[in-house]
Write a protein that binds this DNA or RNA. Structure first.
Length: 408
DNA sequence: TTTCCACCGGAAAATGAGGTCC
DNA sequence: GGACCTCATTTTCCGGTGGAAA
């Protein structure tokens, strides 16, 4: 029987004394832009062609880029812009590029603020209306000498939540002052978001489109080998392991990021085990580990009341994980637990909202049943993942783990 | 065919904590 | 210092849902 200290000592020894597999792990992370982007020559040349007009200070079409996650949209856009900016240094063809990820920015105001930050305009975090912030940004735009390129990544997230007011204002500015705002690039994972756009915005933004198709398994395999050459020492990754990682990712929308994650985590597991080679088995373990870590991470970052709802379901199902619980029973249990903590439970409506969120995250599995006039319509809930995984995630919260001890 | 049950969920308003502006 | 702002969270209100019973 090994103690926890023995296990840690063994992992440490493997990492320090075991064979080194990684030459440069950073090239396997999502934000790394490689020196060449395979299978995207057509998109690179189309984008570079458009941007070259901008550098000549000619009016050029706005661009709409779409494709599934992990198909290289952001990487290609950043790659082309950075290459052209490098080339333009010291010439008269310089331009300013503003890149904002709308989903990460979160709100319309923050998108405006991030654009302002890029061109040296200081806007407060809060206190101004979005309208006022936009006015100040536009004034600053007008003072710019060089043409401006605006890239709005994951623009669908902005439009779905706040409508297309900001996009309308920017396309309007692009129309009226095209010598300043020379080009807007909208990047989206979801083509359907175009239905949400005002026809004037749509016609302006979709003047030109570039489509990124998902990578095939063969393409992903070559992409992986290209990165493995930079990331690992020679001959430490088995070809079968690469084939498996590419196959798994091709089945999941041809997502290159997933493939890179699999190979990176497989390499980390191999290093921890003190293995000299990354094998198929390490890729399988990596797949499990990524799924498990994702769940633990999601639950860890949930607000307290969401965790308390999960805990309530856990306390009911701890001895019969496959049973289902009515949402009303779950609410009663949740209320009892919250009152036990000396707090007031959330309203039923809010509770329903959180249960819906947990179902969408795959933590809960909700099923609608209908027993008719006497029984009515109701949803029954169980866990969408192994109960042991849920428990592990809950144990990371100090308040919840105390309650868990009482339940167990 | 209508009624009823037990929710479900959209929309709008409220709340409170952070802030700016004049 | 008061008016006004953003933003995340929550509450309140209320119409919708679908299948069995009346």
């Amino acid at each position: 029987m090994f103690s926890s200290d023995d296990i840690i000592d063994k992992i440490f020894e493997n990492v320090v004394k075991g064979p080194k597999l990684f030459k440069d792990k950073s090239v396997l992370f999502h934000d790394y832009i490689p020196p060449r982007l395979l299978f995207r020559e057509e998109q690179i040349s189309k984008l570079a062609h458009h941007l070259s007009s901008l550098m000549r200070r000619q009016r050029t079409s706005n661009l709409f880029i779409y494709g599934k996650p992990g198909t290289g949209k952001t990487a290609v856009t950043k790659y082309v812009i950075s290459r052209l900016l490098d080339r333009a240094k010291g010439t008269n063809y310089i331009f300013n590029a503003i890149y904002v990820n709308c989903r990460l920015a979160g709100t319309e105001y923050r998108v405006i603020k991030l654009m302002a930050d890029t061109i040296g305009l200081d806007l407060p975090f809060t206190g101004l209306s979005s309208e006022e912030a936009l006015h100040r940004l536009i004034d600053k735009f007008r003072q710019q000498v060089n043409p401006i390129l605006i890239v709005l990544d994951e623009v669908d997230a902005l439009v779905a939540r706040y409508g297309d007011n900001l996009l309308y204002a920017l396309t309007r500015l692009n129309y009226d002052y095209h010598e300043i705002i020379s080009m807007i690039i909208g990047i989206s994972n979801d083509l359907r978001f175009k239905e949400l756009l005002d026809p004037r915005v749509l016609s302006s933004l979709s003047e030109e489109e570039i489509v990124f198709k998902p990578y095939t398994a063969m393409e992903l395999e070559q992409i992986l080998w290209d990165r493995i050459e930079l990331a690992f020492y020679p001959n430490v990754v088995e070809p079968a392991a690469v084939k498996l990682a590419a196959g798994i990712s091709a089945a999941e929308n041809g997502d290159a990021r997933k493939a890179l994650d699999l190979i990176r985590v497989a390499g980390e597991i191999a290093e921890m085990e003190g293995a000299g080679v990354v094998t198929v088995d390490h890729v399988r373990k990596a797949r499990e580990s990524i799924d498990r870590e994702r769940v633990v991470e999601v639950i860890r970052t949930l607000p307290l009341h969401s965790k308390l709802i999960i805990l309530s379901l856990y306390s009911i199902l701890v001895n019969s994980p496959e049973s289902r619980v009515r949402s009303s029973s779950l609410y009663n249990k949740y209320s009892t637990i919250v009152r036990h903590l000396g707090e007031s439970p959330l309203s039923m409506r809010r509770f329903h909202g959180l249960v819906t969120e947990l179902s969408m995250l795959g933590i809960f599995d909700r099923h609608i049943s209908n027993l008719g006039r006497r029984g009515g319509r109701f949803s029954s809930i169980k866990f969408g993942l192994p109960i042991s995984m849920v428990k592990k995630a809950l144990e990371e919260d100090p308040i919840i783990s105390d309650l868990l001890i009482q339940i167990d």
